[in-house]
Simulated scan of single mutants.
Amino acid sequence: MAVRRVTWRERPWLRFAGQRLGGLVLSFAVLVVVTFVIVPLIPGDPAVAVAGQEATGAEVARIRAELGLDQPLHVQFLDYVGGLLTLDLGTSFSNGQDVATVILARLPFTAELALFAIALVLVISVPVGMLVAFLTHGGRRSWLDHLFNVVTSLVYSVPQYVMATLLVVVFAVGLGMFPAAGAETLSSLVLPTLALMLLPMCVVSRVVRRETAVVLDQDYIRTAKGWRIGRLRLFGRYVLPNVITTTLTLSGLILAAQLGGAVVIETVFAFPGLGQGVVQAILERDYPVIRGTILVLGLMATLIISVVDVILAIIDPRSIEADHD
């Protein structure tokens, strides 16, 4: 009996995974080129930064040769790509350390901050958005709907660095409740996490409120209410699954953006993560550390979005079909 070969169309998961993998490879290639090209545009000479302002021209030229900066740009790029292929991110100009070691020392702080922030965003925003939608459904409690829109719009309009500064002034300097900088204790995470989560929390809660309001107007929800299903069961079984898809998509994008927002927040709070590290590297013209950090942050953001896509495909297989159409 002949064995029938299974085609790609009969295995949508394989094609879906292949598309995501191809996207990751392409994104990584673009990141490599972009990070290599834009970093030398930073004003200042790395050789002068290493040698010092008092160094002679001969000393600067010697250090430039040691750093490989006297080579043509295409030669530097080939050396850079060759190092990446062997998982070598290079050596720091400023302290001579392996760039991978520098990044791995700071990565846990940024990951901890970003994960805490997005976890709190989801835990708070989803219930709040659904509750406001339920309480204001059908035109009821218009004052609550107006208050919700005003508060979320106001908080969202404040830039993150301004929000971070306000939190420091009020809770660290004024009330003395939390440390203003550092990461020595768990309480040091409170203010940076708040500064990082407040803006996305407003966005997610508004989206959840809107999506919940749309779902509550659907015929199957009216039918479920007619069966006298309890409110918790109604929301858990019929409303939440239809809201969570949009919420997860938005949350994935926000978490990816949080990695970039961490640069500002970590600088304000002197938090020893990748954000503060890349700012310090820019000031020191440390090209390998800048490139390695941006590359890692960009790759993490791309991975996060891809993982969210896979989770959404598991929750709602129709997303795979839509992706293939």
Rank of each mutant, 00 (worst) to 15 (best):
A105S: 09
T86H: 15
F109E: 07
L120E: 08
V102S: 06
L104A: 09
A111R: 00
A100H: 03
L107E: 02
P127R: 00
L107G: 06
D98T: 09
F93V: 11
T86W: 14
I118K: 00
V99C: 10
D88N: 15
V121D: 05
L107Q: 02
I103Y: 05
L89T: 05
A117C: 06
V123L: 12
L131M: 12
T86G: 14
V102C: 04
L85R: 09
F93D: 12
G129S: 04
V102Q: 02
L131K: 08
Q97H: 10
A100L: 13
V126D: 07
L104K: 02
L107H: 07
I103S: 03
L104I: 00
E112L: 11
F116D: 04
L85K: 10
V128K: 06
L122A: 12
L85E: 14
D88L: 12
P108N: 12
A100C: 12
P127E: 07
P108Y: 09
V128Q: 09
L104G: 05
G129A: 05
I103D: 01
V99L: 09
T91I: 15
M130S: 09
A100R: 06
T91D: 11
I118Q: 04
L104S: 08
F93A: 14
D98P: 06
D98N: 13
V99S: 01
S92G: 14
F116W: 09
A114G: 07
V102W: 01
P108R: 05
V126E: 05
V121T: 02
S94F: 14
A111N: 01
F109P: 00
F116Y: 10
L87D: 13
S125C: 04
T86E: 15
V126Y: 05
L87M: 14
A111T: 06
D88I: 05
L131I: 08
L113E: 01
M130K: 01
